[in-house]
């Protein structure tokens, strides 16, 4: 017998000794072309899902910041009531407001300031001097213990005719509806991506099983049960799913980070335009993307496992 001890031993991939996930698939002889195509498809879908999730989260956190801003200040408007002395009404209204717990400060806009606010629409102050101009009271709310807005509004309106309290409720409600809608859209996108991933994996697993028919047969003969064989396929496809997910999710994360950097450098500009409180991609968004990647891997593994169990009887 020839002694062939001179033959070099095949080097083992060092990482495989550290991380079980990266261990060489022991059983599944995979088709590298199919695997690459699958990784690409999963990467693209994960990217889209992560971007949608990013957009939803952006909307949600931006709107919730706006809601906080809006809720921290309400306005009381007094419409002039014929000959009633409006200054007395203003004093009465401010007294009620100041006497309410949860109101941190009250600022009355003078007649001049109120006119100034209307100037862009009505022209110079002198022209509107004679007009009955509604007066405004800006009320700062302590966000930690906000007063009952409905009761406060009623109290003001009852004791001061022509006074009304605007707590921006319509706006807040509309904003939260928009953010809910975005959330729904992004969840649907996620469900679609996971479904498509699952389907792609089902077909890939079937193909791989047909290609590995001989190997599966040998494994059965040497005492492997279906569970062992299913685990081999599951591991192979879970790793593919996670690789695709990492590529697509990673690309999405990089884009979100770029937006974050671009966004924070222009925050001053946004503030000047009164858009302060714009949410930037934050750690929650990163966490959501990582979650999407993990989910894709899980779905890929499970889809593969289930397919093996459903197909293996027909192979034997």
């Amino acid at each position: 017998m020839t002694d062939r001890s001179g033959i070099p031993r095949t080097p083992r991939f060092a990482l495989s000794r550290l991380v079980p996930l990266f261990q060489r698939d022991p059983m599944v002889a995979a088709d590298p072309v199919t695997d690459k195509a699958l990784i690409a498809v999963i990467a693209i879908m994960t990217f889209l899902a992560a971007m949608t999730a990013g957009a939803a989260q952006f909307t949600a956190s931006t709107t919730s910041r706006w809601q906080v801003l809006m809720a921290s200040e309400v306005t009381v408007q007094l419409k002039p009531q014929g000959s009633r002395p409006i200054e007395t009404d203003i004093v009465r209204a401010t007294d009620i407001l100041r006497g309410t717990t949860g109101v941190s400060s009250v600022k009355v806009f003078s007649r001049e300031e109120s006119s100034k606010l209307l100037e862009p629409w009505l022209g110079s102050a002198s022209a509107i001097e004679s007009l009955p101009i509604p007066r405004l009271i800006a009320v700062r709310i302590d966000a930690d213990q906000p007063p009952d807005m409905a009761a406060l509004g009623k109290a003001v309106a009852d004791s001061v005719p022509g006074a009304s309290l605007d707590d921006h409720r319509n706006w807040t409600r509309r904003l939260s509806r928009i953010s809910d809608l975005f959330l729904l859209v992004s969840l649907s996108a996620l469900v679609l991506v996971l479904t498509a991933t699952g389907l792609a994996i089902v077909f890939a697993t079937r193909g791989a099983m047909a290609g590995n028919r001989e190997i599966i047969e040998v494994l059965h003969f040497i005492g492997a049960d279906d569970r062992y064989i299913a685990t081999q396929f599951q591991r192979h496809f879970a790793v593919l799913g996670i690789r695709g997910g990492l590529i697509g999710g990673g690309a999405a994360l990089i884009l979100l980070l770029a937006l974050r950097i671009a966004g924070s450098s222009s925050v001053g500009l946004l503030d000047a335009n009164g858009l302060s409180g714009l949410a930037l991609p934050g750690s929650e968004m990163m966490a959501a993307t990582v979650l999407v990647i993990v989910l894709v891997g899980l779905v890929a593994g499970m889809a593969s496992r289930i397919t093996v169990y459903r197909t293996i009887g027909r192979l034997a």
């Binding site: 017998m1 062939r4 001890s5 033959i7 031993r9 095949t10």
Partner: peptide, 12 residues
């Protein structure tokens, strides 16, 4: 008698 061929594949 395969002690020296442990780490090669069957093709060899």
């Amino acid at each position: 008698g395969l002690g020296d061929l442990m780490h090669v594949t069957p093709a060899v």
